[in-house]
């Protein structure tokens, strides 16, 4: 793989990480109120999958969508402006954190009603199939979404019509407050695709290159007209379900054992890729430092842009309900 490609992966992951973490303080201070389901820790999933997609391919996302938006090429300024609920936001301040959209880069939208957008992605793939445009669709959802019937209905229809859609299940072990073992029988999640005859793979979701390789196979499969593909990306959200609270046991939200959180922190996808880049002498330390500074500065500027932007005006409240 070319250095520029690897650099791009790293830049995207780091942008997501820093963009998420820049929100912690403003959330705690109430400057950011819209519920933010932070993507910290899952960056490799979004970036790895989106790197295997073409710009015309469409992506659908869920409540934990900031990373998906940025990975697909959504504008950072407009994302932060949306999270600050400003008129300059990608959804003009109407949608907030859970409704990021960027039609210009075929990021078709995110929504917190669990699994709702999965069927929409199948619909996008249906349109691709009817138009024979060679494009495919991808949909990100969590392990919790596998509780919803709509997932199975979507898998069935996609398989039945041989639609070019990649189902990306980001298994971060928790459905809001419940560990996956309290939500599902102990069968690997990717096996839900099996009864529908859908090709499926489980991948270490904190390894960007592994995710990318899996997604490349999936995209090729879809584009070759072989029907849908299912990827289970094993990952972990370093932050809690919503906001900066880490959901650590013994604290306010009292969910996750500290040891488990520590174990996954050691598998941090951004750190892991940094290590890879250094060990394989793709980058030296100085080069990485330069990239870091550049992205830190870019996120800072984007945040300033968001803060300085105006809020929607009340006279526009009912604008955008209809054409």
């Amino acid at each position: 793989m070319e250095k520029s490609f690897l650099e791009n992966l790293y830049r995207k992951m780091l942008t997501i990480r820093l963009a998420e973490e820049c929100l912690i303080d403003p959330i705690l201070k109430g400057e950011v109120k819209t519920p933010c389901h932070l993507y910290t820790g899952q960056e490799a999933s979004a970036v790895g999958v989106c790197a295997a997609l073409e710009s015309g391919d469409q992506v659908f996302s869920n409540h934990r969508g900031h990373g998906h938006y940025l990975a697909k090429g959504g504008d950072l300024n407009r994302m932060l402006a949306e999270i600050y609920t400003k008129e300059t936001g990608c959804s003009r301040g109407r949608g907030g954190s859970m409704h990021l959209m960027a039609r210009d880069c075929n990021f078709m939208g995110s929504a917190p009603i669990i699994s709702q957008t999965v069927a929409m992605a199948v619909g996008a793939a249906l349109a691709d199939s009817i138009k024979k445009n060679g494009q495919i669709a991808a949909t990100f959802f969590g392990d919790g979404a596998a509780g919803e019937g709509i997932i199975y209905e979507s898998l069935n229809f996609a398989a039945l019509k041989c639609l070019p859609v990649i189902f990306v299940c980001e298994n971060n072990l928790y459905s809001t407050h419940l560990h996956i073992r309290e939500c599902r029988p102990g069968i690997p999640l990717y096996k839900i695709a099996e009864p529908f005859g859908i090709a499926a793979a489980q991948v270490g979701g904190n390894d960007i290159l592994k995710v990318y390789e899996a997604a490349k196979i999936a995209a090729k499969h879809c584009r070759a007209g072989l029907g849908p593909y299912f990827i289970e990306s094993l990952t972990y959200r370093m932050r809690g379900h919503v906001g900066p609270d880490d959901n650590i046991q013994g604290q306010h939200t009292d969910i996750r054992p500290q040891a488990e959180v520590d174990e996954w922190r050691a598998k941090d996808p951004v750190m892991r890729f940094e290590k890879y880049l250094l060990e394989n002498k793709i980058f030296d330390k100085d080069e990485l430092e330069t990239v870091k500074q550049e992205i830190t500065e870019k996120v800072k500027k984007a945040q300033e842009y968001a803060i300085d932007s105006p809020r929607p005006v009340v006279s526009d409240l009912q604008k955008h309900v209809f054409e």
Partner: peptide, 16 residues
Amino acid sequence: LPDCPAPASRSLEAAY
């Protein structure tokens, strides 16, 4: 409420 989905922005929520 007006015949409008709930807006995100606090400026609009206050009027909504």
